[in-house]
Amino acid sequence: MFTRIFGKPKQETSALGTLDKLNETLEMLEKKEKVLLKKAAAEVERAKEFTRAKNKRAAIQCLKRKRLYEQQIEQLGNFQLRIHDQMIMLEGAKATTETVDALRTGAAAMKAMQKATNIDDVDKTMDEINEQTENMKQIQEALSAPIGAAADFDEDELEAELEELEGAELEEQLMQPTIQAPAPPVRLPGGKQPVKVQDDDDDDELAALQREMAL
């Protein structure tokens, strides 16, 4: 917001302007390098033509010009490397400056917050919170305590009654007859039916005995 109103800081503006200038110079050097590469390639082709025409002197002159172009290309490459190095250093310095400014701003904000917040106020607030928590705990305990007729019940008597119910339930389970599950049918080969082990009379006696035990 302040940047929009008052503009960018002078140091940041200067760094951005320098980076823009370096980028422009780098683009210019790259264009010159491309031109020199084309000229060097053209001299090679001309040297081949003079060689086919048996004009050795002219071919050598073409190769000399090619060497000169190559020297300029190498020089331009060194210039580009230095510019890249300068740009990297400048971008690193810019990032470092921005980081330091951000840390400085954060430290100032923390200092201002510490001044605005008094330790006595913090202690007082924590005491109030603890007091309110304790009051709420007491209210919950009061609400959960039994009142009226429920408050007169004896816990020991209730536990004794529960033990009697458990004993009666166990005795009732022991008195119930044990019913054996019928044995699975035996399959004989050839489709023959299995022979019954007990007669119908035995089944009737067993059922009568179970009724008597249940009574």
Rank of each mutant, 00 (worst) to 15 (best):
K38R: 12
A142L: 10
P177A: 01
A116S: 14
N118T: 14
A59Y: 02
D199V: 05
E30R: 10
E164Q: 12
E134T: 15
E49D: 09
E91M: 09
P184A: 15
L76S: 04
M110F: 14
V122F: 10
L165Q: 08
G190N: 06
T105H: 14
L174N: 06
K66D: 01
R82T: 15
E70D: 11
A151S: 14
L81G: 08
Q173T: 03
R104C: 11
D202Q: 08
A142Q: 09
F2E: 13
A150M: 14
I73M: 14
E163N: 10
M213P: 01
L143D: 04
I88G: 05
P189F: 04
L22W: 00
A42E: 09
M110N: 14
M175V: 00
A149I: 07
M1T: 07
D202N: 04
A112E: 14
D101Q: 15
Q80P: 00
V100R: 08
Q176W: 02
N78G: 05
E131T: 12
Q140L: 15
S144K: 13
V122H: 04
P177M: 01
I73K: 03
L165V: 01
I73S: 10
D154Q: 09
T25G: 08
E30L: 05
G77K: 08
E169R: 09
D123V: 15
K48L: 01
L81V: 03
Q210K: 10
A208W: 02
E49P: 00
G167E: 04
E169K: 15
P177N: 02
A208R: 07
E141K: 15
R104D: 13
E166A: 07
M1C: 09
K48S: 08
E205W: 11
A102M: 14
E33G: 05
A58T: 00
L81W: 06
E128G: 15
A15T: 13
P182Y: 03
A183F: 04
L215R: 07
A112P: 00
P194Q: 15
K94A: 07
L162G: 07
Q61E: 12
L63S: 02
E161V: 01
P189D: 04
T178G: 06
K192R: 10
E163Q: 13
E91R: 14
G148E: 04
A93T: 09
A41F: 02
P184D: 13
N78W: 05
F2N: 11
I179V: 13
Q11D: 12
A214F: 08
A102I: 11
N130W: 11
A95G: 07
C62Q: 00
G17N: 14
N55S: 06
M28Q: 13
L188T: 03
Q72V: 02
M113G: 12
D101I: 14
K48R: 12
A58Q: 02
Q114C: 13
S14L: 07
M87L: 02
G191C: 03
